[in-house]
């Protein structure tokens, strides 16, 4: 059998297996009888914490998983940095700046700078309202990162509106992640359980002090506790992660 033919055979076999595989998965998904399970209790007790159930499940019931998700992003960002020379063995490879390929039009130049202000402020609003309305750290951080993208695309990397170097972005990312980790440590220190939602105080028998509870309490009908602060940490981390990626990729363009 020639090489070409063997390739075709391989593709054919792969296609057959993918077909069988998809059949089983689709069959499994069609006769599916979804059981609510623990999510019923999550939804039943969640309104005691905050109105936005997605935020409550993400940051309270399964807050530790969210920490893991955040670290997947951090690891990916650091890996992108390594790929382009930050932190390789035997010394860093310096990054290069490059100007935009196509000069931007006058409309873009006039409107981009004011728009950056408004987008950043809007991102802050989304981040801080995360436990009440749709939004939160991931979304707010992404919105702020779009302001950075906009200014980089319009003005080029060297002259963009933000004066953020790769290292300062890494610092911001580290601060965001440390906020999350240390808020978890507060719960560990006060109650003995990592990421215990100190302010919400769902389980008063743990004996978390009154002062600590009042420090994180919230003058609202519900009591989100540490969730808004976790959102801030996530927002800093997400925005600096995205900005780092665009910084690195922009520098790599003309290599």
């Amino acid at each position: 059998m020639k090489f070409q033919q063997s390739q075709e055979m391989r593709n054919l076999i792969a296609a057959i297996f993918v077909g069988i595989f998809s059949y089983f998965i689709i069959k499994a998904l069609t006769d599916f009888d979804i059981v609510p399970g623990v999510s019923y209790i999550y939804n039943l007790r969640g309104p005691l914490i905050a109105p936005n159930m997605i935020t409550v499940i993400l940051f309270d019931w399964r807050g530790y998983d969210t920490l893991g998700e955040a670290f997947i992003l951090i690891t990916a960002v650091l890996t992108t940095g390594i790929l382009f020379g930050r932190g390789v063995l035997g010394g860093d490879v310096s990054e290069k700046d490059s100007t935009p390929i196509r000069p931007s039009t006058i409309v873009q130049k006039v409107f981009a700078a004011p728009l950056v202000f408004i987008i950043v402020a809007f991102g802050v609003v989304i981040t801080l309202g995360g436990h009440i309305t749709p939004g939160g750290g991931f979304q707010g951080g992404s919105v702020i990162a779009t302001a950075f993208f906009l200014s980089v695309v319009v003005y080029g990397f060297k002259k963009n509106v933000f004066n953020l170097s790769h290292n300062s972005l890494e610092t911001l990312e580290g601060v965001g992640a440390l906020i999350y980790l240390c808020l978890g440590l507060v719960g560990l220190g006060l109650s003995g359980y990592y990421l215990y939602n100190v302010g919400a105080d769902l389980y008063p028998y743990l004996g978390v002090g009154d002062t600590a509870t009042r420090l994180f309490s919230y003058p609202d009908s519900t009591n989100a506790g540490i969730i808004p602060y976790l959102n801030i940490g996530i927002a800093l981390k997400v925005l600096s992660g995205f900005c780092t990626i665009i910084t690195v990729l922009w520098g790599a363009e003309k290599k």
Binding site: A113, V124, V161, F162, L215, F216, P219, P228
Partner: peptide, 26 residues
């Protein structure tokens, strides 16, 4: 977020953090 002013203060701080990194030339 100890009282209603808390969110405003935090928004102010975040704004200052981002504002510190904005170039003036535009």
């Amino acid at each position: 977020m100890i009282n209603p002013v808390g969110t405003i203060v935090i928004a102010l701080i975040l704004g200052i953090v981002f504002g510190m990194s904005i170039r003036g030339e535009y």
